[in-house]
Computed example of a mutant assay.
Amino acid sequence: MTKEIAPLKPAATVLLVRDCDKEQDTLEVFMVVRHHQIDFASGALVFPGGKVDDADTDAALVSHLPESERREDPLRSFKVACIRESFEEANILLARNRDTGKLVTHERLEKLASKYRMPLQNGEVTILQMVQDENLELATDLLGHFAHWVTPTFMPKRFDTHFFVAAAPPHQLARHDGEESVDSVWAGPNEIQAKADAGEYTVIFPTRMNVEALGKFASVDTVVADANATHTVTVLPEMEVTEEGRYLLIPKEAGYSVTRRAVDPLMDK
């Protein structure tokens, strides 16, 4: 009997980046460690993100976007989810005060976080309610489309995940939520890969590939500009079973350094 393929759930994740001057890296990205009781990639180092909520698709949100972002956009709900998830998981809010046109200040962010961060995460309020009540504009124009990965068909839970990249506002203090994520770190792409190889970090395949891709860029400006200027190739890994073991295959056109990799043990969880 043919095994039924699990349905795809839309999801979004964000690479919040900032310039740095380290021995190994010239930029770094904010990452969180997922709680060990989370049912997907538990304990792994990941970018902030999660499933797209129904509330992220609300058409009324359009009037709370920059004018340049109000045209029809199949990625709109994913961008909204990115901003919501980065607020919930990383305490970073890519939103502007509609009166001033400027990103929210650190002081405003702290007040918003204490009022909305957990209620949003618990589903007690929606992102629309927050932006309406607080006169905010979601800065979706700051998000560059970095990658698109679809969970393999053999997995019991599957996600259609769009990755975005954005410059982290320098005046906002990123920190993990203590609920879904139990730790956080600012780290450079080369640093992350080295520590993953040494066993200090657990990094699943899609995350590793996008960390590595981030390492190709010398600055925040260049990575965001490239994300906005280049076409994103969808990656749907396929399984190859050989006498040596199982391997994931990804398209060469996606531009990653590998097209074939042994199955990550975390993929079976």
Rank of each mutant, 00 (worst) to 15 (best):
Q172S: 03
K102M: 15
L142M: 11
E85F: 03
L138S: 01
L120E: 02
I127V: 14
V165Q: 00
T153G: 14
K157I: 12
G144D: 06
T153R: 10
H148S: 10
N122H: 14
E180F: 14
D183S: 12
S184R: 04
G123I: 06
F159W: 13
P119N: 04
H148P: 11
F159K: 11
C82N: 13
L128E: 03
V131F: 13
S181D: 14
V165W: 10
V150F: 06
P170I: 00
L143I: 10
W149L: 04
W186F: 11
T105S: 14
H176Y: 07
C82L: 03
A187N: 05
A187L: 12
G178R: 08
M130C: 05
L173G: 15
R158M: 05
F163I: 09
L103F: 07
H145Y: 07
H162Y: 12
A167S: 12
L142Q: 15
R96K: 13
P156K: 10
F154L: 14
Y116N: 07
D99L: 15
K157Q: 15
A113F: 08
T126W: 05
D141Q: 09
W186R: 04
D177R: 02
M118H: 12
A174E: 07
E85Y: 07
L136P: 00
E137G: 06
R158E: 00
E137H: 07
T151K: 06
G178E: 10
A187D: 10
M155C: 14
R158K: 05
S181Q: 13
E88D: 06
L173A: 10
W186Y: 08
L109Y: 06
G188Q: 00
A167V: 09
E134D: 06
Q129V: 08
H162W: 12
E88F: 02
M118K: 14
D177S: 04
V104H: 02
R175E: 15
A113Y: 12
E179A: 12
F87G: 01
R84Q: 09
W186Q: 02
S181F: 13
T100A: 04
L128D: 01
R84I: 00
L112D: 05
R175W: 15
H145N: 06
R84P: 01
A147N: 06
N135M: 08
A187I: 13
A168V: 03
P119G: 06
D133Y: 03
F159C: 07
T100F: 07
E124F: 13
H171L: 05
E89Y: 12
M130V: 00
H162C: 10
G188A: 08
G188D: 00
L142W: 02
D177L: 01
V185Q: 11
N91H: 14
M118N: 11
Q121S: 12
V104Q: 09
E110V: 11
C82E: 00
S114K: 10
R98I: 15
A166N: 01
R117M: 00
F146E: 08
A167K: 15
H171G: 07
A147T: 00
I127L: 14
T153D: 15
N97M: 11
M118L: 14
F163S: 08
E89S: 12
Q121Y: 12
